[in-house]
Design a binder for these strands. Structure first.
Length: 331
DNA sequence: AACCTGATCAACCGCCCTTAC
DNA sequence: CGTAAGGGCGGTTGATCAGGT
């Protein structure tokens, strides 16, 4: 039969994560890096299954996550990509480095689907939104447009691959500048801090409703980790609770997210939020986990152009004659 | 003020793919 | 090659919140 649900065997805790659990998880990943999720619950004492830990990390705690308000640009990218890729949220998310697939999926289901429906059922078919106005084109036009888009994506992909090939041949580590993470316009300095902000917000909430002592986990492993975290958080401050909670200030998080290079067996540099205004996920400890490897993906520069330039629908004859069957091999 | 309803989003479930043995 | 386990992904659920009545 099927595998039992994650965590069933150990009676793992379910439901919303507490700030304390978040802290333990982040603290652990700070030390060991993401990956090997199976060992996370046992090593941290968290009463969560490995899958839950991974999900919590990738969808919420991971550095570089931007939350809330999607920009119109992001919205249009999602709509275009959804039309092209379908509900392949992870693939779509790879073009929006600051968003998680879960976030995009939720946004699609709650906002965009509704918005599209409204437009499609609307009498006028007109919208202030530039993209939606393009949805009213005839099916034939739309199909041709899609074919063109696919062809452009294919072209871009081959270019990206050729660059990768070149890089590997030359042994150059630097790189395909088209990689979304390497593009300053998208990988803004705030991305890393945003995770600290997430946790800061959590802790602020936690401060408002601090857990009662009785609610504290008694698991020895967790206690150990919590202590180590507290040591990190309270370093240089008084030992009072208030002192500990000073860790919720940005400065304290700077400290918290300053990685000790000695803790890492990889060559990432030790970094902190404040001294790296241009810090991006790719040079953080978490870089390899931050997003799927996009090394073979379409350069975002082209993708962006393709996605956002609604006037780029014109295409040479040969592009238009490309069949959808031809394009299926792309994906 | 109380209740209802819809919107939002974090988290879970189950399936599938990949990888190690 | 077959099997088991880990990890990734998309679909779905349920708790919470906001706005309306």
């Amino acid at each position: 039969m099927g595998r039992p649900p994650c965590g069933d065997k150990i009676g793992a805790k379910k439901g919303p994560w507490t700030p304390g659990e978040d802290i333990i998880l982040v603290s652990y990943i700070q030390e060991h890096g993401p990956g090997n999720w199976r060992s996370v619950p046992s090593n941290t004492g968290l009463l969560r299954c490995s899958k839950s830990c991974r999900l919590r990390w990738t969808n919420y705690l991971r550095p570089g996550i931007k939350r809330g308000n999607f920009t119109e640009q992001e919205e249009q990218m999602i709509i275009h990509l959804q039309a092209l890729l379908g509900n392949r949220w992870a693939a779509i998310a790879s073009y929006l480095p600051q968003r998680t697939d879960n976030d995009i999926k939720n946004y699609w289901n709650t906002h965009l689907k509704k918005k599209l429906k409204k437009v499609q059922t609307g009498v006028d078919g007109q919208s202030q939104d530039g993209f939606f106005s393009t949805q009213s084109v005839s099916k034939g036009q739309w199909e041709r447009r899609l074919q063109t888009d696919i062809r452009m994506a294919k072209q871009a992909l081959s270019e990206a691959l050729s660059i990768d090939k070149l890089n590997s041949l030359t042994g150059s580590k630097d790189i395909n500048l088209s990689h979304p993470y390497l593009r300053p316009s998208l990988s803004q300095g705030s991305t890393y801090a945003s995770s600290a902000e997430n946790i800061s917000r959590l802790l602020e909430n936690w401060m408002k409703n601090p857990p009662k002592p009785a609610a504290h986990q008694t698991n020895s492993g967790e206690t150990m980790t919590q202590n180590s975290f507290n040591n990190t958080m309270t370093a240089g401050s008084s030992s009072s609770d208030e002192g500990a909670f000073n860790a919720t200030t940005p400065e304290a998080f700077d400290s918290f997210f300053s990685f000790n290079s000695s803790n890492s067996d990889v060559s990432h540099e030790s970094v902190s939020v404040d001294q790296n205004a241009n810090l991006t996920p790719e040079n953080s400890l978490f870089q390899e986990e931050s997003k799927p490897n996009l090394g073979t993906q379409v350069p975002l520069t082209l993708i962006e152009k393709w996605l956002l330039d609604d006037s780029s629908a014109q295409a040479p004859e040969d592009l238009i004659t490309m069949t959808l069957e031809d394009s299926t091999g792309l994906f």
